[in-house]
Nucleic acid binder design. Structure first.
Lengths: 333, 333
DNA sequence: ATGAAAGCGCTAACAG
DNA sequence: CTGTTAGCGCTTTCAT
C-alpha cells in the first residue's frame, strides 16, 4: 500500500498537476479560481475522501473548535444534564466538547485546566470543586486569551463570566413553601459549605424563614455526600427531635434522604414532609411526587452556550447571567 | 504587549542564545544535554509558563491523545455512567475524551464520526443508534487506521472490537427470577427492536421462561421511550388482563413503568411485581427496593478502556469482550 | 486565474 | 554536547 492515496492538499495538487494553494482555494470556493478547476479539484477530493487535517488548521489559526468542560464529577444529575445540553448546543455551533472531571480535587482541576490549554480550546466552562481556593490558575488561563465561563459553582467576586442559578432566591422559594405547609420543625441539609452556592441557598432559606415566621425551629446540617445525608437523616428520624419537614439542597442529598425515610419506615407526607432543590427526575419518580424547586442543568447549559457565543463575538470579560427557577408542587409537603 | 513573551521553543531559544532543538531536548531531559543547559532552559520555561503546542506535536506525530466517544444520548443512565468511568480511566492513561451525542439519528452519528476523524482521535468508542443500518462509515474509519471499539449497542457480526453485556444471559437471569417468584402472568417491555441488545435480552428471557415453565403467560411489547412505557403500562393495569409481574429491559423503561404504577394507585409487590435490568440507582431509591439484574456502565467503561489499551498495543482488530451480571434482590417480586 | 514561498511550533535525522 | 535542516498539512501574502 503506497502513501500516494493519503488525502492531503499536496497529494491532490500533484495528481492534478496544479499547485497546493490552488487546491486549497478551490476547496474553499474562492472566487479567483476557474469553475473548471474547482470542479476537477472537488471531484478528486471527494474521491479521495479528503478532510482537512484539523491540527494543521489549528496550528495556523491557533484556535480549535473545541470547548473544554470541567466539572467536579459527571456522576451528578445536574452536571450531567448540563453537559448533555451544552453538547447539543455546541454541536449546532460547530464545536465539540472535551469533558474533564476534577474528582472534587483542586489538583486534578488544575491539571485539567492545563489539558485544556494544551489542546488550545476555544473556551472553558468550569464548575469549581468545593475545595478550590486559589483562582490564580484560572486567571493565568484567562490572561493567555482563553475565555473561561464559570457555571453553577462559581467564584464569589465579579471579575469573571458567570452563569448561575438564582441561588438566594431558590432558598427563599423553599422557605415560602415550608411556611405555606404550616410545618414548623425544619431539618435542612446542605452540601459543602465552601461553595457560594451552598452559602446563598442557606442564607436565602434561613433569612426568609426567620423573616416571615420568626418562631420556626430550623436545624441546618452540612453533609458531604448522599451516604452522609442518609446517615444523619436516619439518626434524626429515630431521635425524639423528629422534624416535620426535611429540606434537601440537591439531588444527591435528596436520594440519601429518601432512602433514609424508607429504611426508617416513615411515610411521606404524613410522618414527615420533604422538599428539595432538584431537576425533577427523582421527585417525579416518587409516590407521592416530591415538591421541588426546579433548577435545570439543561437550561443552564443552553444559556451558558449562548453567553459563550456572545463572549466570543464581543470579547466580554465580565458578566453575570442568572437563571430563575420555580416551585413544582408534588405531594410531599 | 509584545509577542516576545509567547511561550514557544523558538522564543526560549532566542532568549538563551541557543538552538531550538537544544531547548526541545533539554525539556525532554535528553541525556545528551549538559546539566547546566537543562537547568537554564527549565528555569526560563517555567518562568514563561511554557506548554508545548499540542497541535504542533499532533501534526508531527499525527496522533492525538484524545478518544472520541459517540453515544445515542448522554441523558441515559447507562451511557452517562459509562462515560464517567471511561473518563476516569482515560485520564489515568493520559487521554482526554471528546464526547458526542447522535440524538438517535444515524445522520448525526456519521457527522460525529467525521468530527472524530477530523480531530485525528486515537480511537473511537461507539454505541450505535437503534436506526443505524449501514456500517460502511465505520469500516472506512477503521480502514483509515483509527481503531473503533463498539460497546453496548454493537453490530451483529464479529468483524469488530466489541465490549458488551452478556445480554442473553441477563434475559435468562430475569426469567429464572420470575419463575422463582411463582408469578405466572408476565408483561415484558423492551426497547427498540432493531438493536441486537433488545433481541438478545428478549430471546434470553422468553426462551428460558418457556423452557423452564411452559405454561407461563408472557406478553412482550416494544416501546420507544419512558413516556410510551408509562402509557402502555397504565393501559395494561386498568385492563382486565392485569399482569402479575412487569419486566423492564432498561432504566428508561423502568422509570415510565414506576410512574404508571404509582399513578394507577397500585402497590408493589402486592398488586404487581416488578423486575428490571438496571444499574441500580433507581431500584435502590424505591420502597420496597426493586429487584434488578445489574448492568453497570461503570464496569463496562473500565473494561472498554482496558481493552482499548490492548488494542493500541497489539493492534488487534477483532475482539469480543463480555461482561457478566447478576441479580440484586429487592422486595418488588 | 494560478503559483511560489513563508511560516504556524514542534520533532528527529544528520552533522559536527 | 549542540546546531542545522527538513518537514508534518495547511493558510495566506505576494507575485505573475
Amino acid at each position: 500500500m503506497h502513501m500516494r492515496n493519503k488525502a492531503t492538499l499536496k497529494n491532490i495538487a500533484n495528481q492534478l498537476g496544479i499547485s497546493i494553494s490552488t487546491v486549497s482555494r478551490a476547496l474553499k470556493d474562492h472566487p479567483d479560481i476557474a469553475t473548471s478547476t474547482k470542479k476537477k479539484v472537488r471531484e478528486l477530493a471527494d474521491l479521495m475522501d479528503f478532510e482537512p487535517n484539523a491540527f494543521a488548521v489549528y496550528l495556523r489559526t491557533n484556535q480549535s473548535k473545541v470547548i473544554g468542560v470541567i466539572v467536579p464529577e459527571l456522576s451528578n444529575f445536574f452536571y450531567h444534564s448540563f453537559v448533555t445540553s451544552v453538547e447539543e448546543e455546541a454541536r449546532k455551533m460547530g464545536y465539540s466538547l472535551i469533558i474533564l472531571q476534577s474528582a472534587n480535587d483542586p489538583v486534578v482541576e488544575e491539571a485539567n485546566l492545563k489539558l485544556c490549554k494544551l489542546n488550545r480550546v476555544a473556551g472553558i466552562f468550569v464548575a469549581l470543586t468545593p475545595e478550590t481556593k486559589d483562582l490564580s490558575p484560572f486567571d493565568r488561563i484567562n490572561a493567555s486569551g482563553i475565555p473561561i465561563l464559570f457555571f453553577d459553582k462559581v467564584p464569589d467576586d465579579n471579575e469573571y463570566i458567570k452563569v448561575c442559578i438564582a441561588d438566594r432566591e431558590v432558598g427563599k422559594i423553599a422557605a415560602r413553601a415550608i411556611i405555606e405547609s404550616k410545618r414548623k420543625k425544619v431539618f435542612a441539609l446542605f452540601g459543602n459549605a465552601n461553595l457560594s452556592i451552598t452559602r446563598k441557598r442557606k442564607q436565602g432559606l434561613v433569612d426568609e424563614l426567620k423573616t416571615l415566621s420568626p418562631f420556626i425551629d430550623i436545624t441546618t446540617l452540612t453533609v458531604n455526600n448522599s451516604h452522609d445525608a442518609k446517615k444523619v437523616t436516619i439518626d434524626m428520624l429515630k431521635s425524639n427531635q423528629r422534624a416535620e419537614v426535611i429540606f434537601c439542597m440537591s439531588d444527591e442529598i435528596l436520594t440519601g434522604v429518601i432512602m433514609a425515610i424508607h429504611q426508617s419506615g416513615f411515610v411521606i407526607p404524613s410522618d414527615v414532609g420533604l422538599l428539595a432543590i432538584s431537576n425533577g427526575f427523582v421527585p417525579k419518580l416518587m409516590n407521592p411526587e416530591i415538591t421541588y424547586i426546579e433548577t435545570s442543568g439543561d437550561q443552564l447549559g443552553r444559556r451558558a452556550m449562548k453567553t459563550f457565543g456572545e463572549v466570543l463575538e464581543k470579547g466580554i470579560t465580565k458578566k453575570l447571567d442568572i437563571i430563575e427557577s420555580r416551585l413544582i408542587k408534588g405531594g410531599s409537603l
